[in-house]
Structure formats: structure tokens, C-alpha cells
């Protein structure tokens, strides 16, 4: 049950639109808002959240700091990166920083609502382009890190199918597994992204688009 949500967004119109959207998807939720990294970090230490929707580019910095702070203080909260212009590499960086999913603010309302619902239900979003980025990320960094950061064979297969244009349900049937299993694989991939990105340099490199 979603009781409390954090929305970090610096454009006022977009902020109220997101508020509207979230309250429609999760009825009865209390929404706290922040328009800067500093404001968001302050809220993080004051309020217990169930859901956080965080813009990546904020006036006083980037949203990754909020993801990390939440990851450390409130590990249970569902963290979602909200981006409009954010490049695929920025999304990978957000996932590395602990986001469980991402939404594109330019998508139609209906699609956005569906994606939000999916994330809540444990079905993480993953577009082919982002999947390709994630694959390359692991190709470059995987062997360097401890085993916790290395993808299993199944996870690699899931990732490869999605990168080739299949959706989670298609991937599941292609691999002969349940859709929920495929989703858990994706969530595991996201977690490992965080593990393999613990080295700050890698995160930075990814964020700068150096690792592609």
C-alpha cells in the first residue's frame, strides 16, 4: 500500500502534472515535493516514503545523490527516475545509483500510468536501447568486479532478448519462463548494475557517456 510519495522536479507545471499522475495511479497517497537536490535530501531525512519519483537534472545538481541517499536511509522505498531529455547513459547511471525503474516524461499519460503501475507491481521497464547500454556496461566493467556484480547466464539471456526488441512477456515466453521470473531477472540486473558501479569512476564514465 502506497502511503507516501516523494516527487522531485524543478519545472512547476511538470511537477503538478506528475502529482496529478501519481495520485491517479495510487489513490489516497500523500505527496511531498521538492524542486532541488538539497530540498529532496532534507525531506529524505524527515519523512518515510514508499515511492520516489526523481528528476535527473535539477538546478543544484543531479538526482543521483537523492537515489543514493534514499538507498542508504530508506532501502525499502521504490525509486523511479523521471527523465525527459535524459540520455540512455543517464538512465543507466540512475539505475546504478539505485533506481528500480524509469519513466519518460514525454510519453503519453496513459503509457506513463501503465509503466508506473508496472514498476509498482514489480515489472521493471527496460527499453531495447537501455538494455543495449546495460549490456555494454557489463561488457566493460563486469570482469573487474566481485562475483556479486557479474550477470548470470539467464540474466544475460534476458538482457540480450530485450536488447533485440522483445518485451518482457515475449522474452519470458521465448525463454520458457514465467513473466514474473523474467521481471526478477531484470531487477537483479539493476541491482548488479549498482554493485558493479560502486567504483565511482565507472558511474562517472557511464554518466559522461564514455562507456558505451
Amino acid at each position: 500500500m502506497m502511503k507516501s510519495a516523494l516527487i522531485v522536479e524543478d519545472i512547476p507545471e511538470t511537477l503538478s502534472w506528475l502529482e496529478q499522475l501519481v495520485s491517479e495511479v495510487f489513490s489516497g497517497i500523500t505527496i511531498h515535493t521538492a524542486t532541488s537536490v538539497r530540498g529532496a535530501l532534507k525531506l529524505c531525512s524527515e519523512v518515510q516514503f514508499d515511492l520516489a519519483l526523481i528528476d535527473l537534472s535539477l538546478p543544484d545538481g543531479e538526482g543521483y545523490a537523492v537515489f543514493r541517499q534514499l538507498g542508504a536511509k530508506q532501502p525499502e522505498v521504490i525509486k523511479i527516475a523521471a527523465t525527459v531529455m535524459g540520455s540512455d547513459s543517464a538512465i543507466v547511471s540512475a539505475l546504478s545509483a539505485g533506481a528500480q525503474g524509469y519513466i519518460l516524461k514525454s510519453d503519453p499519460d496513459a503509457l506513463l500510468k501503465k509503466n508506473l503501475g508496472n514498476i509498482h507491481d514489480g515489472i521493471p521497464p527496460l527499453s531495447p536501447a537501455v538494455a543495449r547500454r546495460v549490456m555494454e556496461h557489463f561488457r566493460f566493467t563486469g570482469p573487474v568486479f566481485d562475483s556479486a556484480g557479474i550477470l548470470t547466464k539467464r540474466e544475460t539471456e534476458v538482457l540480450a532478448h530485450i536488447a533485440r526488441g522483445l518485451r518482457v512477456s515475449d522474452t519470458a515466453s521465448a525463454l520458457g519462463i514465467e513473466a514474473s521470473t523474467a521481471s526478477s531477472h531484470i531487477k537483479a540486473i539493476y541491482r548488479k548494475l549498482g554493485v558493479s558501479s560502486r567504483a565511482e569512476a565507472t558511474t562517472e564514465a557511464t554518466r559522461m557517456g564514455l562507456i558505451r
Binding site: 510519453d107 496513459a110 503509457l111 531495447p128 536501447a129 543495449r132 526488441g165 518485451r167
Partner: peptide
């Protein structure tokens, strides 16, 4: 190929809604 993959998903999302 990569571009077509992306387009396919984008289109599927839109029509399936």
C-alpha cells in the same frame, strides 16, 4: 537494426494502450 527495435517497442506501446 537497433533503431527498428526501438521503433517496434515504441509503436507497440502506443497501439496496445
Amino acid at each position: 537494426w537497433d533503431i527498428l527495435m526501438d521503433l517496434r517497442i515504441e509503436m507497440a506501446d502506443r497501439v496496445e494502450l
